Simulated assay, not measured.
Amino acid sequence: MEKKALLASALTVLAMTALPAAQAGAMSPGLSPAPVPTDTGASPPAPTDMTSPSPTDMTSPSPTDMTSPSPTGTGAMTEPFGPACASLPATGEGSLEDMAGKPVADAVASNPELSTLNDAIKQAGVAETLNSAEDVTVFAPTNDAFDKVPKDTLDKLLADKEELTKVLTYHVVEGKKTPENLTEGTLTTLQGGTLTVEGSGEEFTIDDAKIVCGNIQTANATVYLIDGVLMPK
């Protein structure tokens, strides 16, 4: 009896020892039970910085000045005007570009619309005086303007150098006059007399002559082509 009791006890101990092993064997091979965290309520540590790195400057570079440059003297007329401007050569001698690079007497000489005036300048010997002048305005009679003068009167004028010089310098005033300056009323000429100016915009008269192409630039002068020859009073 005693042996049977000991055997039963040994079997009971053996069965109890084998039970955990049998339970472990029921688990999938190679899988270990997940470790229980020490503190299940703690949140996982946040990364040091999850935000995308900001560039030093995400704004577009601003140019020093995005505004268009304002011309000096807003509203001032800068281009030649008048119906006779269309008759000037588009390129080459006598063109606006050609005249802009020459002193005024040379510019007149290159312009086919001013050939009679060029002859008068040569006859009077004032080409160098005009070329060396600083900042003048010339009211230049066109060939058509000289054609209005009776031939005998014109021939007599061209033959009298002193009188011709007076007439030519009566067409010149100091300073490069813009169209806006032509509303002054009167202008003093190099001859010493005065010119009466009337008009505005693109319509002007100088004494009794009309401007037919104005605001032409040369190296030292502003030129206004006129349809009449001005005679000193």
Rank of each mutant, 00 (worst) to 15 (best):
N143Y: 02
T169K: 06
T222C: 05
E93R: 07
P47Y: 00
L225N: 05
T78V: 14
A109R: 11
V13E: 02
T188N: 13
V173Y: 01
T40K: 02
A86T: 06
L187E: 10
M99V: 09
L154A: 11
S54K: 14
D160P: 08
T222I: 15
L190A: 08
L157A: 14
E128T: 14
A124G: 04
T72R: 01
A86D: 09
I216R: 00
E113H: 06
V223L: 06
T91K: 08
A42R: 12
P29Y: 00
F139G: 12
K156A: 15
P103W: 03
P45S: 15
V167T: 09
T12G: 06
F139R: 02
S132K: 07
T189V: 09
M58S: 10
L195N: 09
A24K: 04
K210R: 04
S70N: 05
A18I: 15
S87V: 09
L96C: 01
G101S: 13
A159G: 10
P61M: 00
K161H: 04
A21W: 09
G92N: 07
P83T: 04
N118P: 04
M77I: 15
N131A: 05
A221W: 00
E203F: 13
E97L: 13
D57N: 14
S60D: 05
Q191M: 06
G175F: 01
T78M: 15
E174V: 15
V223P: 08
V173W: 00
T40D: 07
A18G: 01
D39S: 13
A124L: 12
A145H: 01
A76Q: 11
P55N: 10
A22C: 08
P83I: 08
M99C: 07
T38L: 14
Y224C: 12
M27P: 04
D119T: 14
A5F: 13
D39V: 15
T153W: 03
G125H: 02
G41Y: 12
E93I: 06
F81Q: 08
M50W: 11
A133E: 00
V197C: 07
T56A: 12
L182Q: 03
A26W: 00
V108D: 04
L225G: 06
M231H: 00
A145F: 07
D119P: 04
L158K: 07
A42E: 13
K233F: 01
K156D: 13
V13T: 06
L195T: 06
D57S: 10
V138I: 02
P35L: 14
K3L: 14
T169H: 03
P61D: 00
M1R: 07
T17C: 14
D49E: 10
T51W: 11
T205F: 06
V172L: 09
A127E: 08
S95Y: 03
G228W: 10
S60W: 01
V229S: 08
T38G: 07
T116W: 01
S95M: 10
D65P: 08
V172I: 11
L19K: 05
A15C: 11
L114C: 10
D49Q: 10
E198S: 15
M27D: 07
A209W: 04
V173C: 12
N215T: 05
P55W: 02
K161W: 02
L187I: 09
S70W: 00
G201E: 13
E93A: 15
V13D: 02
